[in-house]
């Protein structure tokens, strides 16, 4: 028996909105530790890694490890039926081929449930090695989304370069070039507005705009985003999901041909 209850169903909806650009379908691995998802996009350029801790749920029970393969378009349809303030309860029997989502309104005056068919997905899991990153940048997630959106107009790639002076985002293309430089700013009153850089050594890497833009669909999940970079290693773009876990995106840097 698997049962997970989340008072803020909108959090799960935001997670879904954040990954549905990249993934058509995905396996949710449920265990007593919580719900995990790891999947590459269809081009195998980026990797999505979601971790929702069991103690972040309002109720969590998982008697037996369970892998639920879901079509994310269908899952999106189910969550479209939920109200913004609804509580969601996910339930599945052991070895079941369906999962049930029950939505309850805050006042308990409306209860709806939707049963969705599960899929058998043959998904490979990749082992992600621990990396000592050359630089870790934390910045407002809205600012990151804005910069990626702005610079995407100029080219297909963005160079992210980080030195002790700050972080620079650059793009170039047919119409010209664009550069955005951010200095470190620590706002003790408003931590979420700070830009902080933890630098071991300067690094500059090139990434495809298309994927960076997809990652920023996770912006509503978190005030801050963490970018971890190292030469010849995928970029990690991490959004903390308050009290529940995190959503990470990995993107392979572009390399000289």
């Amino acid at each position: 028996m698997f049962e997970a209850r989340l008072v803020n169903s909108s959090t799960f909806r935001k997670v879904l909105d954040a990954i549905k650009d990249l993934l058509n379908e995905a396996s949710f691995d449920c265990s007593e530790n919580g719900i995990q998802l790891q999947a590459m996009d269809s081009s195998h350029v980026s990797l999505v890694s979601l971790n929702l801790k069991s103690d972040g749920f309002d109720k969590f029970r998982c008697d037996r490890n369970l892998t639920m393969g879901m079509n994310l378009t269908s899952l999106g349809k189910v969550f479209k039926c939920s109200g913004a303030d609804d509580t969601v309860t996910m339930k599945a029997q052991d070895y079941a081929d369906t999962v049930t989502f029950m939505f309850e309104s805050k006042k308990q005056d409306k209860i709806s449930d939707y049963e969705m068919k599960l899929m058998n997905l043959d998904q490979e899991h990749l082992g992600i090695p621990d990396t000592e990153f050359s630089c870790i940048i934390k910045m407002p997630s809205i600012e990151f989304a804005r910069i990626i959106r702005d610079l995407s107009q100029f080219g297909e790639s963005i160079v992210i370069s980080c030195t002790k002076e700050g972080v620079k985002f650059s793009a170039q293309g047919d119409i010209g070039t664009g550069n955005v430089k951010l200095a470190q700013t620590h706002n003790f009153d408003k931590e979420e507005e700070s830009v902080t850089i933890d630098l071991q050594e300067p690094v500059a890497l090139t990434f495809a705009c298309q994927y960076l833009n997809s990652f920023t669909k996770a912006t509503p999940l978190s005030n801050q985003v963490k970018l971890s970079m190292c030469e010849n290693v995928p970029l990690v773009v991490e959004y903390q999901i308050p009290e529940l876990g995190h959503l990470r995106f990995y993107l392979a840097p572009k390399i000289e041909e």
């Binding site: 590459m40 081009s43 195998h44 350029v45 980026s46 990797l47 490979e124 899991h125 990749l126 082992g127 992600i128 090695p129 790639s157 090139t206 495809a208 290693v233 995928p234 990995y250 993107l251 392979a252 840097p253 572009k254 390399i255 000289e256 041909e257």
Partner: peptide, 13 residues
């Protein structure tokens, strides 16, 4: 520039 696969960086488990 070329875009490598993410699978080149991580091992199959």
């Amino acid at each position: 520039m070329a875009q490598p696969s993410i699978a080149c960086y991580f091992n199959n488990r």
